[in-house]
Lab assay of single mutants.
Amino acid sequence: DIIVVALYDYEAIHHEDLSFQKGDQMVVLEESGEWWKARSLATRKEGYIPSNYVARVDS
Rank of each mutant, 00 (worst) to 15 (best):
Asp1Glu: 14
Asp1Met: 14
Ile2Cys: 12
Ile2Gln: 09
Ile2His: 12
Ile2Asp: 08
Ile3Glu: 03
Ile3Cys: 08
Ile3Tyr: 10
Ile3Lys: 05
Ile3Arg: 07
Ile3Gly: 02
Ile3Val: 10
Val4Ile: 09
Val4Tyr: 11
Val4Trp: 13
Val4Ser: 02
Val4Arg: 02
Val4Ala: 05
Val4Asp: 00
Val4Phe: 09
Val4Cys: 09
Val5Ile: 14
Val5Asp: 02
Val5Cys: 08
Val5Ser: 04
Val5Met: 08
Ala6Gln: 00
Ala6Ile: 01
Ala6Glu: 00
Ala6Gly: 06
Leu7Ser: 02
Leu7Ala: 03
Tyr8His: 09
Asp9Met: 04
Asp9Phe: 04
Asp9Glu: 05
Asp9Ser: 10
Tyr10Ala: 01
Tyr10Asn: 02
Tyr10Cys: 05
Tyr10Val: 02
Tyr10His: 06
Glu11Met: 12
Glu11Phe: 11
Glu11Pro: 06
Glu11Gly: 06
Glu11Asp: 12
Glu11Arg: 10
Glu11Ile: 15
Ala12Ser: 08
Ala12Val: 02
Ile13Phe: 10
Ile13Trp: 09
His14Met: 07
His14Thr: 09
His14Cys: 14
His15Ile: 13
His15Lys: 13
His15Leu: 14
Glu16Pro: 04
Glu16Thr: 13
Glu16Asp: 14
Glu16Arg: 13
Asp17Glu: 15
Leu18Asp: 00
Leu18Thr: 03
Leu18Ile: 08
Leu18Gly: 01
Leu18Tyr: 02
Ser19Thr: 08
Ser19Ala: 09
Ser19Asp: 06
Ser19Phe: 03
Ser19Glu: 06
Phe20Pro: 00
Phe20Gln: 00
Phe20Trp: 01
Gln21Val: 11
Gln21Arg: 15
Gln21Tyr: 09
Gln21Lys: 15
Gln21Glu: 08
Lys22Leu: 06
Lys22Ile: 08
Lys22Ala: 11
Gly23Thr: 02
Gly23Arg: 02
Gly23Tyr: 05
Gly23Cys: 08
Gly23Gln: 02
Gly23Leu: 03
Gln25Ser: 08
Gln25Met: 15
Gln25Asn: 08
Gln25Leu: 15
Gln25Thr: 11
Gln25Lys: 15
Val27Tyr: 08
Val27Leu: 15
Val27Ala: 07
Val27Pro: 00
Val27Arg: 07
Val28Cys: 05
Val28Ile: 14
Leu29Phe: 08
Leu29Lys: 05
Leu29Tyr: 07
Leu29Val: 08
Leu29Ile: 10
Leu29Thr: 07
Glu30Tyr: 10
Glu30Asp: 14
Glu30Thr: 10
Glu30Arg: 08
Glu31Leu: 14
Glu31His: 15
Glu31Ala: 15
Glu31Val: 13
Glu31Thr: 14
Ser32Gly: 14
Ser32Arg: 14
Ser32Asp: 12
Ser32Trp: 12
Gly33Ser: 06
Gly33Val: 04
Gly33Leu: 04
Gly33Lys: 05
Gly33Gln: 05
Glu34Pro: 12
Glu34Leu: 14
Glu34Ile: 12
Glu34His: 15
Glu34Val: 12
Glu34Lys: 12
Glu34Arg: 13
Trp35Ile: 08
Trp36Ser: 06
Trp36Glu: 02
Trp36Ala: 05
Trp36Gln: 04
Trp36Tyr: 14
Trp36Leu: 13
Lys37Ala: 05
Lys37Pro: 07
Lys37Met: 14
Lys37Ile: 10
Lys37Tyr: 15
Ala38Gln: 00
Ala38Gly: 05
Ala38Cys: 12
Ala38Ile: 05
Ala38Met: 04
Ala38Asp: 01
Ala38His: 01
Arg39Leu: 09
Ser40Trp: 02
Ser40Met: 15
Ser40Cys: 11
Ser40Glu: 07
Leu41Met: 10
Leu41Glu: 05
Leu41Ala: 06
Leu41Cys: 14
Ala42Gly: 09
Ala42Ile: 12
Ala42His: 10
Ala42Glu: 12
Thr43Leu: 03
Thr43Trp: 03
Thr43Gln: 05
Arg44Gln: 15
Lys45Tyr: 07
Lys45Asp: 09
Lys45Ile: 09
Glu46Phe: 07
Gly47Met: 01
Gly47Arg: 00
Tyr48Asn: 09
Tyr48Cys: 12
Tyr48Val: 06
Tyr48Arg: 11
Tyr48Leu: 09
Tyr48Asp: 03
Ile49Ser: 00
Ile49Val: 08
Ile49Asp: 01
Ile49Cys: 02
Ile49Arg: 00
Ile49Thr: 00
Ile49Trp: 01
Ile49Leu: 04
Pro50Ser: 05
Pro50Cys: 11
Pro50Leu: 08
Ser51Trp: 10
Ser51Thr: 05
Ser51Arg: 12
Asn52Gly: 12
Asn52Pro: 04
Asn52Ile: 08
Asn52Asp: 11
Tyr53Trp: 07
Tyr53Leu: 14
Tyr53Ala: 11
Tyr53Thr: 04
Tyr53His: 10
Tyr53Glu: 02
Tyr53Pro: 02
Ala55Phe: 08
Ala55Ser: 11
Ala55His: 08
Arg56Val: 12
Arg56Lys: 13
Arg56Asn: 07
Arg56Ala: 08
Val57Arg: 06
Val57Asn: 06
Val57Thr: 09
Val57Ala: 08
Asp58Val: 12
Asp58Thr: 12
Asp58Trp: 07
Ser59Cys: 13
